[in-house]
């Protein structure tokens, strides 16, 4: 057998490979762009959910922004105080931990409680449903229940039960993606330690609100009388003032609309930072 062609071929290919390899090795040595090792370190600290809650395109982008000084370290909601502490230590910035905020749907109108005004059989998306005659519920403020918020939640913390979105506070990472998705603007960030909430967003007058839903706020101000500063009125709608703890249960028991509820343990009497952001509905 003539071995020459085999040797020439393997020699040529081997030679080309060797030349290219050494060129790449040299390029890597002399043309490399040094990357700030800080970025990799910061990215390692961040939770890696890529929720976008900080306003950057994922954790890597946020790490880059911190390293370059374009962003502060306290924007990562899912990370909580632990991540904040580590980021602060890594960058030398000072940051005070604020209480974790979780998203809450301020509506209790499920398919049994809220009144439908027509049958909607289109695309199962709240934004689409809201475009047909203003949504299929008589209440123009309440949850439509087609799950646009659940669709965008990166951690699956939102369940749609009986046409009503419910957010699990333990699972919620506070990225606010659901707030952006909700066409009704009824999802609000609340401090995790607070357990008493006014779960209604209807700004309608009492009789109108009552006709549309069994669990509507009728604007009677009972909670403000009984619960003091923990509640406040916004027109015909009661709202929770999260800065003041709601210690007594009388407002919950006496609420004629049954729209004040306690989720979890009673609230401690300590003060908490007010919930950030504007009241629900402002982004719509």
């Amino acid at each position: 057998m003539d071995w020459m062609p085999v040797l020439i071929t393997s020699g040529t290919i081997g030679g080309v490979g060797l030349a290219c390899g050494s060129a790449l090795a040299l390029a890597a040595k002399f043309l490399s762009v040094p990357e700030d090792p800080k970025i990799a370190e910061l990215e390692g600290i961040l939770p890696g959910v890529n929720c976008g809650g900080c306003g950057f395109a994922g954790c890597a982008d946020y790490a880059k922004a911190i390293a370059s000084g374009a962003a502060s370290v306290d924007l990562c909601a899912p990370g909580g105080p632990d991540v904040l502490k580590k980021l602060a230590a890594a960058t030398g910035q000072e940051a005070t931990a604020t209480e974790k905020q979780v998203a809450m749907v301020l509506c209790q109108g499920n398919e049994h409680r809220a009144v439908h005004k027509h049958i909607y059989n289109g695309v199962a998306d709240c934004n689409a449903a809201a475009m047909v005659a203003g949504g299929d519920m008589l209440c123009t403020y309440g949850c439509l229940g087609y799950g646009s918020c659940a669709f965008v939640c990166p951690v699956g913390a939102i369940a749609i039960k009986e046409n009503l979105a419910t957010i699990h506070p333990e699972l919620c990472i506070g990225c606010k993606a659901c707030i952006k998705a909700c066409p009704r603007g009824i999802i609000r960030m609340v401090p995790e330690s607070r357990s008493v909430h006014v779960l209604c967003s209807s700004k309608d007058k009492g009789p109108v609100a009552k006709k549309a839903c069994q669990v509507a706020c009728i604007g009677c101000k009972m909670c403000v009388k009984l619960g003091g500063e923990a509640f406040e009125m916004d027109g015909f709608l009661a709202k929770r003032n999260y800065a003041i703890p709601a210690t007594s249960d009388t407002a919950i028991e006496k609420c004629p609309g049954k729209c004040i509820v306690k989720i979890g343990a009673s609230e401690a009497t300590t003060q908490t930072a007010p919930a950030d952001g504007a009241p629900s509905g402002s982004h719509a």
Binding site: V123, D125, N127, A128, M131
Partner: peptide, 13 residues
């Protein structure tokens, strides 16, 4: 497929 409804929603978005 609910095409037009998708487009109406998409356009508004």
């Amino acid at each position: 497929r609910p095409l037009v409804q998708h487009f109406k929603m998409g356009k508004s978005r």
